[in-house]
Design a protein around this nucleic acid. Structure first.
Lengths: 343, 343
DNA sequence: GTGAAAGCGCTAACAT
DNA sequence: ATGTTAGCGCTTTCAC
């Protein structure tokens, strides 16, 4: 291994000072053309790369973003992450990723591990447990320590910071409206995320759409669970198509959609002829199920890009500049595939 | 915002020297008990955290691993990543992730961006384009610069480094053997990854299994594509169950499995009664398709953990210690679900 | 135009 | 037991 090239090395070999080399490489007008060329060519020859850590120490910024994701197996988060990564790299930032696994403790550990100069700011979606316990001190501490946070999707109203969300309420209203328009009379609501703020908002949208259309709310048509396992277990008994006359299902999350899709077919009914189905979903499989699933698509990559842009703008804003916190809303899109009837 | 606590700050406020504070905080026996206690309590009060960047500069190691993933939408890579993240964190390492998007250029850019002290080593799976073009200089350069690499899944034989792979050949042999045992006479092979080394290996396993069982190879039963789109397009015409008497399908990747699953059902045939199906797959949906998919499971998290352990062991090995490069093979598992008949 | 020197925050060898 | 000093690699101010 060739010893790593440093300014000092180059300076010595070229018989000039370290500061001359530094300036020459940064193309400073202080340095004469011939010297610049000599230094730059030699540096290229030696494959010199400024040591990032030293630069960071000097500039007190790491150009690195910490991303904390509750559950990496959820494709929505993966899509958001891909958007963050892309936007961050485009602006010269790296991304350190931690997975909280829905655990408050891991969330705190991860933030602690990174809040020491390693990262300049956080992009995160609040862990399930954190939302349940209403424990937000670690977020507030980071902000107080001048480490900005951008929350996406699962946010906390109690924390004052930038946020990027989906219009969950409106999206649900739209989706249910669509089911009503295509002729559904008894629309079931199924949730595997009733413990999350977004789950609540979507459920409220369902209720609102029914109300606006003058449809009475029937609690027997509502199945709210706090995990996919729970839903998987309860759905077959709940799904009494004859007794309840269910002709539409609105699923609040991708896994719930798949649960319904599978169970409805297994029970011997046709989609969409007997039962129409719409679900929130961003995975690759919604279009590959048979029949394919009509979805509320959340535009994960756009959410990630917006979050990264927001954070970096704040990181790079001038010291004095008062940048008010903003909440960006990314619109969803209703993707009609084969699990709903055409209008 | 309270100004960030530094050793200097604390030293001044306590009227001692910087080195005393440093030693007291690291519990050095050089320092007297009373002083230690005084310093440690004050530091806790001030919420002191050693600046990681300064520590890194001093130690010349960042305790950070660079991970380069070809395609984040492939759930196999996500699972591997989750294993890497877990094992790395357990040993006090952070993980910076880049997505090459199967592009050689992005792969090079990403490695360049990180090879300046930002990371201590790489864990990566080679991009499609890189394998196609046989361009491995960037890997060799990194290794020459003393930045170790661990390759997983998609490796390059030309590069001398640690590797973690799946026994693709044997796994394919097993899977095809299983189809033969359950009565398949005409087993089709479909691939959407014929451009990748792992795709080749799996195809060879298929051929070997047929040969070992005395089954003649029929080129009409083999459909090798280089993308899911291509396969999606060609499969329906290829899948002539009556003419070719296809009664089994072996799919080399998760997407190919889903393509076959969907197309077979759409063509009006039953799984597994008319056609049995086995595919390489690690996504969450294999068990949720109807009927669920029998798979060759690659144990993504274990691969990630092994890769991280291997890399960190090398990073933390003593200077003189000659650590030979090793290739770890993680065994796959045949998961029998509903797309194959019971034995 | 070039170089010397200070300093980012920390550790550690070397005084005292 | 505590302090002084040097130095990690770099940028930047200030002298020459």
């Amino acid at each position: 291994m060739r010893p790593k090239a440093t300014l000092k090395q180059i300076a010595k070999e070229l018989g000039v000072s370290v500061s001359t080399v530094s300036k020459a490489l940064s193309n400073s007008p202080e340095i004469s053309e011939p010297t610049k060329i000599k230094v730059q060519e030699f540096a290229k020859l030696k494959n010199y790369k400024p040591n990032n850590i030293a630069v960071n120490l000097k500039s007190k910024r790491s150009k690195t973003i910490g991303v904390i994701i509750p559950n990496i197996l959820n494709p929505f988060f993966v899509k958001v992450f891909s958007g963050i990564e892309k936007a961050a790299n485009a602006r010269g930032y790296n991304v350190i990723t931690c997975i909280s696994n829905e655990s408050l403790k891991k969330e705190i550990t991860a933030m602690d591990m990174l809040s020491n100069g390693t990262i300049d700011g956080f992009i995160l979606s609040v862990a399930d447990e954190t939302q349940k316990e209403h424990e937000f001190k670690h977020f507030k501490d980071a902000i107080a320590d001048d480490i900005p946070i951008v929350m996406f999707d699962r946010i906390s109203e109690d924390v004052n910071c930038d946020k990027v969300i989906v219009d969950d309420f409106d999206s649900a209203v739209n989706a249910v409206n669509h089911l009503i328009k295509t002729g559904c009379k008894n629309i079931a609501l199924i949730s595997n995320i009733d413990n999350l703020s977004v789950g609540q908002l979507r459920a409220e949208g369902y209720l609102e759409a029914l109300k606006a259309n003058g449809v009475a709310i029937n609690e027997d048509l509502i199945l709210r669970c706090e995990s996919t396992e729970e839903l998987d277990e309860k759905f077959p008994a709940f799904f009494d198509i004859k007794g309840k006359k269910i002709d539409g299902v609105f699923a609040l999350e991708e896994s719930a959609s798949v649960t319904a899709h599978k169970a409805v077919l297994k029970a011997g009914f046709r989609i969409p002829e007997d039962v129409q189905l719409i679900g929130f979903a961003d995975g690759v499989w919604s279009r590959r199920l048979t029949p394919s699933l009509s979805t509320v698509s959340q535009h994960g990559p756009e959410i990630g890009e917006a979050a990264a842009e927001t954070l970096i703008n704040r990181l790079e804003s001038k010291e004095g500049e008062e940048l008010p916190y903003e909440t960006k809303v990314i619109k969803t899109e209703l993707r009609q595939r084969d699990s709903t009837k055409k209008l």
